[in-house]
């Protein structure tokens, strides 16, 4: 399967994504500089974490206007798979490819630690290798991961079953104590209505093998690989 990883000035998880996909998952990976508009015919686009444009103005606010993002939007509109991790999630929200926004953590601190997330929906190309209710141990590393959406938007997310993962404790209980950043209803990741664009704050790119403390991120990548089998991807 062919993955294209976008690279912005200030991206710093682009090589984590490249590593997990190429060396752990044994897939074809190409890096796409943000000024390029040719995505090089991928099956899936990965918008990686980091601090694109130094987080100036708002996280992801400037990156969304990079030339590559027009191509990513076109690719997504044709049904292509797009996953945004951390800053990538923030960029996808700013670009309007996902609803809502990520604002400053409730505790104001940058948080870098392992968290548990509960899979709420496995009928997606990004979670089909998981069970509903399954708990994944995946690290977060962000200062602006506090998911916000207005009441109408939240209702729409629920009506369309777009809340994919929530912060939880080790046993899978979704509690206020297990919410690291103040996210609305413990939301850690969502998809679009069409299920082909997924954004999450936790890093499956940093949790693909045991030596990193958890291999649970592997399930996200395996889901994407499984989704490709028999699926018609966008040109």
């Amino acid at each position: 399967m062919r993955f294209s990883v976008t690279v912005f000035p200030g991206s710093n998880c682009d090589h984590d994504c490249e590593y997990v996909l190429r060396d752990v998952e044994k897939q074809d990976v190409q890096m796409i500089w943000h000024k390029d508009t040719d995505l090089k015919n991928p099956d899936c686009v990965v918008v990686p974490g980091g601090f694109s444009y130094g987080d100036y103005l708002r996280t992801g606010a400037i990156a969304r206007f990079s030339p590559v993002m027009k191509s990513v939007a076109d690719f997504a509109a044709k049904g292509g798979l797009v996953i945004g991790i951390c800053n990538g999630f923030q960029i996808l929200c700013e670009a309007g490819l996902l609803p809502g926004a990520l604002i400053r953590n409730k505790g104001l601190k940058f948080i870098c630690q392992n968290v548990y997330i509960r899979v709420e929906n496995n009928q997606t190309p990004f979670t089909n290798a998981c069970k509903v209710g399954q708990t994944l141990k995946i690290p977060i590393a962000h200062g602006e991961g506090n998911y916000f959406i207005d009441a109408e938007g939240l209702k729409s997310l629920k009506d369309n079953n777009q809340i994919i993962v929530r912060y939880c404790d080790e046993k899978g209980n979704v509690t206020p104590e297990a919410n690291p950043n103040g996210s609305l209803e413990n939301i850690a990741g969502i998809c679009n209505v069409n299920r082909n664009v997924f954004g999450l704050m936790p890093h499956p790119d940093r949790s693909g093998e045991d030596i990193l403390g958890s291999h649970d991120g592997h399930l996200i990548w395996q889901s994407i690989l499984a989704a490709k089998v028999g699926a018609k991807c966008a040109d």
């Binding site: 606010a61 400037i62 700013e94 609803p99 926004a101 916000f148 938007g153």
Partner: peptide, 8 residues
């Protein structure tokens, strides 16, 4: 378009 995010 840029200076404010209408979501928040």
């Amino acid at each position: 378009k840029l200076l404010a995010n209408p979501n928040t």
